[in-house]
Every structure is written in structure tokens, then in C-alpha cells.
Amino acid sequence: MNIGTDRSLGAEGEAATAENHENGKKLIAMSDCLACHQEQKKLVGPAYAEVAEKYEANDKNIDYLAGKIIEGGSGVWGQVPMSPHPDLSQDDAKEMVRYILSLKK
């Protein structure tokens, strides 16, 4: 199932998606991400809602953004660099991204 594009989920799929998003939210809360990001307001980095509006929730973007979380970087949202998180697993980073992208209105 492609969480980002399948809008015809049944009750079971909706529960699994909500659970995935909740796991991503918990992973963010346990990390240092909230020192620079908030859900709706720009701090040092963009608000998660801004990221969700910029990127469609598809496998390519989930992989790309998970890589940015792990590797860090700058230039997309300004010159302030995002710290790398090399100890974060690819799977955990993807869960975090799925949560962030779920904030799209």
C-alpha cells in the first residue's frame, strides 16, 4: 500500500496509517528535531506543515526526505544547515517523514 497516494483506504487501512503517523510523531518527540522545527510555525527550520505542502507523499519524496534527516544539509529552506542524524535508521526516518507529510491540508 502506498500511504501517500492511496486515498481509498478502508477502516483497517486507516487505523494502520494513523498508527504509522503516531509512531513517526513519537520518534520526532524523542529526537532533537523540535529544537528547530514545530508543526505549524517556522523556527530555525521550516514548519512541518510547510514541508508537507511542498512535497507530495510518495515513495520518492519519502526516501529523499528520510535521507535529508539522516545526512543533514542546507540550501532547500535557506542557508542554515540541518544537523545530520546518522544514528537514525532509514525505517525510523521514513516513519517521521510519513507523519510530517500527513500534515498536508
Rank of each mutant, 00 (worst) to 15 (best):
P81A: 07
Y99P: 03
I69K: 01
K60W: 14
I3Y: 12
V51T: 12
V97R: 08
G73F: 10
Q90Y: 08
L34I: 06
G4R: 03
V44Y: 09
G4M: 09
G45Y: 08
I70V: 10
K42Q: 13
L9C: 13
L88M: 12
H85P: 01
V97E: 00
K54Q: 09
D32V: 07
C36D: 09
L103C: 07
L27I: 02
D6M: 14
W77D: 00
I70P: 03
E53A: 14
P81E: 03
E53Y: 05
E95H: 10
I62L: 09
L34M: 13
C36W: 14
D6C: 14
N20Y: 11
A11V: 10
G75H: 03
H85F: 06
G73A: 12
Q40C: 14
I70E: 06
M96L: 05
A57Y: 14
E12T: 13
Y99E: 01
D63P: 01
K94W: 10
P46Y: 04
M1N: 10
L88S: 08
E95Q: 07
E53N: 05
N58T: 00
M30R: 03
M1E: 08
Q79E: 12
N61L: 15
L34T: 09
H37W: 12
K54E: 12
I100T: 13
M1Y: 14
V80F: 13
I100R: 09
G75N: 04
G10A: 13
K41E: 06
Y64L: 06
G13F: 11
A35F: 15
L27G: 02
L103M: 13
A49I: 05
P84S: 14
D63F: 04
K68D: 00
A29I: 04
H21Y: 14
T5C: 08
K94C: 11
H85C: 04
E50H: 12
K60A: 14
I69M: 08
N58I: 01
A57P: 01
Y99M: 01
D59L: 14
G73Q: 02
S83F: 15
A18I: 12
T5F: 09
G78R: 05
D92H: 05
K42T: 05
V44G: 08
M82G: 13
G78F: 09
E56R: 02
D92A: 10
E56W: 04
P84H: 14
M30V: 07
P46G: 04
M30K: 07
G78E: 00
E39F: 15
I3A: 15
C33N: 02
E19L: 13
D87G: 02
R7V: 15
D92F: 06
A11Y: 06
L34C: 06
D87Q: 00
M30G: 10
V80L: 05
I69G: 03
D87L: 04
